[in-house]
């Protein structure tokens, strides 16, 4: 996993609540057996005017001029500003894969759906939660100033605006450590092999029917 330390990035505002995983990456793209290449199909149904199918030349497809991420001023954005309950719906990890592949490194919203939130951390994508009033303010500032950038510092747990306002966000210590260092979850867990085996031995005595 790519470590996340500090990102200074152009901000793109996606001003709708309850953006679901079907919107982030429509199901026809879930047929891929790979982890990469989902970026061109992030928000596919909003982003293009035609119906997207796997294998299409996305560069040749008609873009929806009304979709905010298609505006010239947001090209190259790496911070996505969103509204409450972002990422609701399915458990598909293709949603963070698509956002990451698109170029986003951090998300800022008042709240996220649980599974999606969890999945982001496994993929080097930092989902930041800030109070709704602050997110609202960031939306206004982003819309008002083309080229608006934010600095996200994971070690310090801060988001800094161009005029120097600093917002502190919460993040679980363990998740933070893994993301900062790009650590592989499985090898860390396998350090506990002895404990897992001891649990199994104990459980086998209490509940042997689980081990047949």
């Amino acid at each position: 996993m790519r470590p996340f330390t500090r990102v200074e990035g152009l901000v793109a505002p996606l001003d709708r609540a309850n953006v679901d995983t079907d919107a982030i990456i429509p199901k026809q793209f879930l047929k891929s057996i790979k982890r990469t290449g989902f970026g061109p199909n992030a928000f596919d149904e909003w982003r293009y005017l035609d119906r997207g199918e796997p294998g299409m030349d996305n560069g040749a497809r008609p873009l929806n001029p009304d979709f905010v991420l298609n505006q010239a001023r947001y090209q190259g954005a790496s911070v996505l500003l969103a509204r409450e309950n972002f990422g609701c719906g399915s458990s598909r990890e293709h949603a963070p894969w698509a956002l990451e592949d698109y170029g986003f490194r951090a998300l800022i919203a008042p709240s996220y759906a649980d599974i999606f939130y969890n999945n982001c951390f496994k993929n080097g994508l930092l989902p930041i939660m800030l109070p709704a009033e602050i997110v609202d303010r960031l939306f206004q500032e982003t819309l008002a100033a083309p080229g608006y950038k934010l600095v996200v510092d994971l070690a310090a747990q801060t988001v800094t605006t161009p005029n120097g306002a600093v917002f502190v966000f919460d993040v679980d210590a363990e998740r933070k450590n893994r993301l900062l260092n790009g650590l592989d979850d499985i090898s860390l867990t396998l350090q506990h092999t002895g404990k897992i085996q001891a649990y199994e031995a104990r459980r086998k005595l209490e509940a042997p029917w689980l081990f047949v």
């Binding site: 982890r35 399915s90 458990s91 598909r92 990890e93 963070p96 599974i115 969890n118 999945n119 496994k122 993929n123 363990e174 979850d185 499985i186 867990t189 396998l190 506990h192 897992i196 199994e200």
Partner: peptide, 17 residues
């Protein structure tokens, strides 16, 4: 429900954090 990274994690370790 879990994501694909966790599917792999449970396959490999029988556990989840």
């Amino acid at each position: 429900g879990i994501g694909t990274s966790e599917v792999e994690h449970v396959l490999a370790t029988q556990c989840l954090w």
